[in-house]
Amino acid sequence: MAKVVGGNTGSKVRKKLALFFLIGWILLIIGDRVDELRVYQGAQIAMYTIALASIVLLTGYSGQVSLGNGAMMAVGGYAAALTLNNLQTPIWSAFMMAILVAALFGAFLGLAAARLSGPYLAGTTLALAVGLPAIANQFSFLGGEPGLLFDVGFPPERFGEDFTQYKWFFWIATFIALIALFVTSNILQSRFGRTWRAIRGNSLAAELSGINASQLKVLAFSVSSGLAGLAGAVLAMTISLVAPGAYTLALSFALVTGAVLAGISSLPGVVLGGFILVAIPEIADALASSLGSEDKLNSYLPGLIVSVLLILSVIYTPNGPGENLRKHFHKKSAH
């Protein structure tokens, strides 16, 4: 089985905290030196990072495939928008609400799903993803097709005149992503994380050693949904809107792809995954315009690239590029 991960001693956590501070500081500096588009993409990367972490936690650690992360992002987005629009509370409370409500939804769905092996969960969440617009349109307080506004407001004045809206998004998104990753990485290294891995390895053995596998799976589902909800709220912030059209099946696909590409059980990998997901549309655009700018190309080329990448990576690097590299060096050193 997996090698024993050392206990979460206080000094380790402090070191990690320092590392995250350092990363945050570097990101802030970078944010000051690049143009608006890159800043905006930085916010998107941060958003994807959180969403991918939710998949890594669920699929990579507890061995469940879900296409429901897009739906959970929607739940988070709507929860945040409703909170902010109706209660006029500070923005951070909207994000907290996104986590909370999505985690609750996740727990409910997880109750149904945790008793099921892979295909049932994947199918159920696929159904959810396909039907999400229909469900969202069902309730008038969700704003129907056009959705709800989600406006986190202008950056504080003390940041100065040339502190742009996008930079403000970037700051918030990055800040949230850093906290989310820090917390997630601690969860994964905790007793829970280890037990999740044990369940993934072998439900039966875990059950025999006194672990309640199904309860833990519900918990994994719930935590993962909370993270997805947070990502959904961040997404809503960057587009100032929550609408069914933002949380499509294609988004869920893209997330699974990003997670598989980056290594489905590697948390640091999610940053790479985020980069890839932001880069794909850019590459597709460039390709499409070099191939002639037909509508078809614009609409389907990104999907083509995503699916080809997904297929290739699931066949050739099913456990993430990291494993292949390790194997490669292992062989070399054996000779």
Partner: peptide, 14 residues
């Protein structure tokens, strides 16, 4: 590895 259970499902999605 971890992909064993999830790979087929993900592959058909791809």
């Amino acid at each position: 590895g971890p992909a064993l259970v999830v790979a087929p499902v993900i592959a058909t999605l791809g």
